[in-house]
């Protein structure tokens, strides 16, 4: 578990460093994700896969992903000055935009899958 966490932190650190050095417009953790993904696929090709600790740490984090958003969400208590008088309008935009995004994304995915193939949905 700790070994796995160390690996995840290292890959995030690599990601952040690459973004800092190159000025890429991509978040550091996402670059870390791509690096870890590449490392795992490469080692699978070479027939060497000892990723058990990383798999355990990843499983533990992803199983409690929701928890990680709680501290930012509690920030709602400190918002008074921004949303004054705009709460209803913000709520309207937020809900409608979420529903539109859900629908558009789903339609594009299902439509492209029908057009391009890619196997039947299970």
């Amino acid at each position: 578990m700790i070994k796995g966490l160390a690996a995840l932190l290292l890959f995030q650190l690599f990601g952040e460093s690459i973004v800092f050095l190159t000025g890429l417009a991509v978040p550091g953790p996402v670059v870390g994700l791509m690096l870890l993904f590449a490392a795992m696929l490469t080692s699978a090709r070479l027939g060497r896969s000892s990723w058990k600790p990383v798999e355990d740490a990843s499983g533990a984090l992803l199983a409690n992903l929701g928890l990680l958003f709680v501290p930012a969400g509690v920030g709602v208590v400190a918002l008074g000055r921004f949303v004054e008088g705009q709460t209803l309008a913000i709520g309207f935009v937020l809900v409608l935009s979420a529903v539109l995004t859900l629908g558009a994304t789903m339609l594009a995915f299902v439509g492209a899958r029908r057009l391009l193939g890619g196997g039947d949905p299970e």
């Binding site: 995840l8 995030q12 978040p27 953790p29 990723w51 992803l62």
Partner: peptide
């Protein structure tokens, strides 16, 4: 951050 990296798995 680490949880985002973890999606690679």
């Amino acid at each position: 951050g680490p949880a985002t990296v973890a999606i690679a798995v």
